[in-house]
Design a protein around this nucleic acid. Structure first.
Length: 575
DNA sequence: GCCGTTTTCGGCCCGACTGTTTTCAGTCG
């Protein structure tokens, strides 16, 4: 079975967990965690890189030793270093680390003193009152363990960005309305527009932190207060979403916003850079000795280390710091750059509004054009259109375009890519459309080779314009199908067609790393809502967030073009 | 275990809160 990046990343995580419990050098542990992260974010199979003769030590955080371990895992499927560790410590110990309040030291104590290495043993010992007897543990810790175990099922749950927004926005409004609160903002992965967030990190300016954290813990939706002090508090909302609040004085707001926006990897790298320049960065400011030289705004922090402002979406330590130093940061695309939307549905298939209503809603968003792209007949659950119904719709849209003012409708289809790579609509009908979006809606489990061939073949259809939701994943629900995205993107370049970044909150597909690949290949990406109702155009902001995480600029995005420019680009696809 | 525009050796980000302490270790972000 071929080894994928995720398999290797998991092995490195396990090694890191076990080393940590053993009390190994913390920097050695971090090295394994960094390498695991590098692999997860690589965007292409390290196995293929290696086969292509690439030097793996050129990857960030991978040195001679870890490159050799990667090679060993790819070749043998095993890792002797992990097996050796597992002889000394039971592998399931790392499960215990997932329990909040249990870190490596305590897990080690539980194992060493009570021979506990499974969650079941942990629960039994807690019930028997044996845990409170251990040095460094107490009755409260024991109770918290039991509480967590009881609710363990959803403790590791992450929230989709759009769902988190539904909780974040009213909470933010509540905090901003509190007396003494000058400003409040969500930082963390939410501000970086990650696809999912594990918790919300909120930052507020106020003189009296105590009063604000108290009011925060009294917010209507708070189920449980996990910690509370004069400058920070952590609560669990009824929805299961954890929220951290930090309160800082105005002069530290920028420093705190920067610090709590993260990512952790970005912070570590920037702090190291600051240190080299004789500065100390913390959440209260940038310091030279005991003198604060910056901190009231985020840009002041960047100025202090001589870097241009790095937008939150780029802060992952994936090359943005080097790019900033070299003056090569992208000027990221913004929501206001979009001139239209190339993917939506009406009542004719599985949408909820008429074509006219969709057009008017798009016009209200300031769009110049909107493509109507119903499903094709293969997708019967969505009342997909056959040739006859599509031809009728083409006529209807032509008529509507005569009457509508301020927006132009484009005629399109989201046509199913069948198992053999053919399209679910005759070419003669496709020829009459402005654009053809190809989409995989079935046979997700084909082998990598077959799935890739299927998509490449579909792209070769002379009318094929745009590949919809290229990975097919549904966030937290369905993994991407196995496809060689490198080849797909390369083929799109050769064929001269485009890729979609589907902005639906469940999809956010193209993935950020693939956006970067598309940009490097020079393949334009269309940020589409896939709207099924008039409200769905609002989702475009999440798509733009994803595009920004993928380093896309206005020029990299197809639907930032004017209608006239777009028409030229659509025509070009057909040669 | 990685890394180097001061280093191939000696560094590796920094502070708040909790619980168990009697001055602080462990955990977390």
């Amino acid at each position: 079975m071929p080894v994928h990046n995720e398999d290797i990343a998991r092995i490195f995580d396990q090694i890191a967990d076990l080393l940590e419990i053993e009390g190994a050098n913390p920097f050695r542990i971090r090295a394994y965690r960094n390498a695991s992260r590098t692999l997860r974010e690589l965007g292409q199979d390290v196995r293929l890189l290696r086969e292509a003769g690439e030097d793996l030590t050129r990857l960030p955080g991978i040195g001679k030793d870890l490159a050799a371990k990667i090679a060993e895992i790819i070749e043998t499927g095993r890792c002797r270093a992990l097996e050796k560790l597992q002889k000394r410590l039971p592998p399931d110990l790392s499960e215990l680390l997932r329990i909040p309040g249990l870190g490596p030291k305590r897990v080690h104590a539980l194992y060493h003193d009570l021979d506990i290495h499974t969650l079941e043993q942990l629960e039994r010992a807690a019930r028997d009152g044996r845990i409170r007897e251990l040095p460094g543990f107490g009755a409260k810790t024991e109770a918290r363990i039991l509480e967590t175990l009881a609710a363990h099922a959803d403790s590791s749950r992450r929230f989709k960005l759009a769902v988190a927004a539904q909780y974040a926005e009213p909470l933010l409004a509540y905090l901003r309305a509190l007396p003494g609160v000058e400003q409040a903002e969500v930082a963390g992965s939410y501000r970086r527009a990650k696809e999912t967030v594990g918790d919300l990190d909120i930052l507020a300016i106020a003189e009296d932190g105590e009063a604000v954290t108290r009011a925060f813990t009294e917010y209507d939706e708070v189920e449980n207060v996990l910690s509370q002090g004069p400058t920070r508090a952590t609560v669990l909302l009824r929805s299961g979403l954890q929220v951290d609040l930090r309160v800082v004085p105005a002069e530290s707001y920028g420093a705190a916003l920067y610090y709590f926006t993260g990512s952790r990897a970005h912070n570590i790298a920037v702090r190291r850079l600051a240190q080299k320049r004789g500065l100390k960065f913390n959440e209260y400011g940038a310091w030279r000795g005991r003198r604060r030289v910056a901190g009231d705004t985020e840009p002041s922090m960047f100025r202090a280390i001589g870097l241009p402002f790095i937008p939150p979406e780029l802060r992952e330590n994936r090359g943005e710091i080097e790019a900033a130093r070299a003056g090569l940061l992208p000027k990221l695309v913004e929501l206001g750059d979009l001139r239209g939307d190339l993917h939506c549905h009406s009542r004719a298939s599985d949408g909820h509004a008429s074509i006219r209503q969709m057009a008017e809603a798009a016009r209200d968003h300031g769009f110049e054009y909107l493509a109507i792209t119903e499903h094709s007949k293969r997708l019967t659950v969505a009342r997909g259109l056959d040739s006859r119904r599509l031809l009728q719709q083409i006529e209807a849209i032509d008529e509507l375009n005569e009457k509508l003012g301020g927006i132009t409708l484009l005629k399109g289809i989201e046509v199913d890519i069948l198992e053999d790579g053919s399209l679910d609509m005759p070419d003669a009908v496709l020829a009459r459309l402005d654009l053809v979006i190809g989409a995989v809606h079935s046979k997700f489990d084909l082998s990598r080779a077959k799935q890739t061939r299927r998509i490449l073949r579909a792209m070769d259809n002379p009318y094929f314009t745009l590949l919809a939701h290229p990975s097919g994943r549904l966030i937290e629900r369905r993994a991407p199908y196995d496809v060689d995205m490198n080849r797909v993107i390369h083929h799109a370049r050769q064929r001269g067609c485009y890729l979609e970044l589907n902005a639906h909150p469940e999809r956010l597909d193209l993935l950020d790393t693939h956006c970067q690949m598309a940009r490097e290949e020079g393949v334009l990406v269309s940020i589409n809502s896939d709207a099924h109702s008039v409200q769905d155009f609002d989702n475009l902001r999440f798509g733009v967030g994803q595009a920004r995480r993928g380093w896309l600029e206005k020029k990299d995005v197809l639907n930032t073009r004017s209608l006239a420019q777009l028409r030229r680009l659509l025509k070009k696809v057909r040669g």
